[in-house]
C-alpha cells in the first residue's frame, strides 16, 4: 500500500521477463493480490456483536488468496502459484535471510526478526501458511498467523484499538471496515515504512526553533 516491493529482475535462464511478486504483501501492480474481498473472517468475532442485534457489520479487509507470480509467455501472461516452482525444490529450513538464496527472492527486502522463511511459509504446501504448531493457515487468514507471535497487538486489535479503520464508530448506524495486519505491515519487513510529512502549518511568524544542547532544562 505504501511501497511497491516488487523486485523487477531480468533472468537469463527463464522466459523473457519474470516479474517476481513477493509474498502476500499488498502490492501495487499485482491485481490478484491487491484486490481484496471484504469478507468477515474469524477475526470478525474480535469485534463484539457484528452482524447481530440490529448492528451493522465490521468488515476486515483481507488478501484474496495466495500470491501469484505473473509470467509473460508467448501465449500471454500467466499467473503461476508459488507451488509451481516450490513443489520441485527441496525446502531449506535454515534459511533466515534472503542473502543465502542463489536464485529468486534474493532482492526481497527482509527484516522480520530472526525467523526463517519456513517459520511462516508452509513447506508442505507453498500456497498456504503454517503456524508454529504445524497447523495450516490460508493466506486469507494471515492475521491468525501474525497473532501467534504478536499477542499484544492482536489483543489490541481484537478490542478495536490497533489498526486503522473507517466508517462508523456507532455500529447501530452504519458499518465499519478495518485494516488487515498486512495492509499496513509488509510481512517480510513489518516495521511501518517511513513517511515524509506532506502537510505542514504555514502560520505567520512560525519559524523552526533553534535548539541548543542545554535548551529546555535549567
Amino acid at each position: 500500500m505504501f511501497q511497491a516491493r516488487s523486485s523487477n529482475r531480468m533472468s537469463d535462464r527463464w522466459i523473457l521477463l519474470i516479474l517476481v511478486v513477493c509474498g502476500f504483501t499488498p502490492l501495487s501492480g499485482c491485481d490478484e493480490v491487491g484486490s481484496r474481498h471484504e469478507v468477515n473472517t474469524e477475526f470478525a468475532d474480535f469485534v463484539g456483536g457484528t452482524g447481530s442485534g440490529g448492528r451493522f457489520e465490521v468488515t476486515i479487509s483481507r488478501p484474496a488468496g495466495p500470491p501469484v507470480v505473473r509470467v509473460a509467455t508467448p501465449e500471454g501472461e500467466v499467473a503461476l502459484a508459488c507451488s509451481t516452482c516450490h513443489d520441485v525444490r527441496t525446502p531449506n529450513f535454515s534459511n533466515t535471510t534472503t542473502a543465502d538464496l542463489d536464485e529468486f527472492h534474493r532482492d526481497l527486502p527482509f527484516g522480520h526478526g530472526s525467523i526463517s522463511c519456513l517459520s511462516c511459509h508452509n513447506s508442505d504446501n507453498y500456497d498456504t501458511l503454517r503456524l508454529a504448531n504445524q497447523t495450516t493457515v490460508e493466506y486469507t487468514d494471515v492475521m491468525t498467523l501474525c497473532a501467534q507471535c504478536h499477542g499484544q497487538q492482536a489483543r489490541s486489535y481484537e478490542h478495536g484499538v490497533h489498526g486503522g479503520m473507517s466508517g462508523y464508530w456507532d455500529l447501530t448506524r452504519g458499518p465499519r471496515t478495518r485494516n488487515n495486519c498486512v495492509d499496513c505491515h509488509d510481512p517480510h519487513q513489518p516495521a511501518f515504512p517511513r513517511m515524509k510529512p506532506t502537510f505542514k502549518p504555514r502560520d505567520r511568524f512560525l519559524t523552526p526553533p533553534e535548539h541548543d544542547e542545554e535548551a529546555g532544562h535549567d
Partner: peptide, 19 residues
C-alpha cells in the same frame, strides 16, 4: 526555580531558542 514554567520569563529577559 527554572523549568518549563519559567520559559516565558527566560524568553523575556534573556531570549530563548534564538528568539
Amino acid at each position: 526555580t527554572g523549568g518549563a514554567h519559567t520559559s516565558s520569563a527566560r524568553y523575556l529577559y534573556l531570549g530563548l531558542h534564538g528568539k
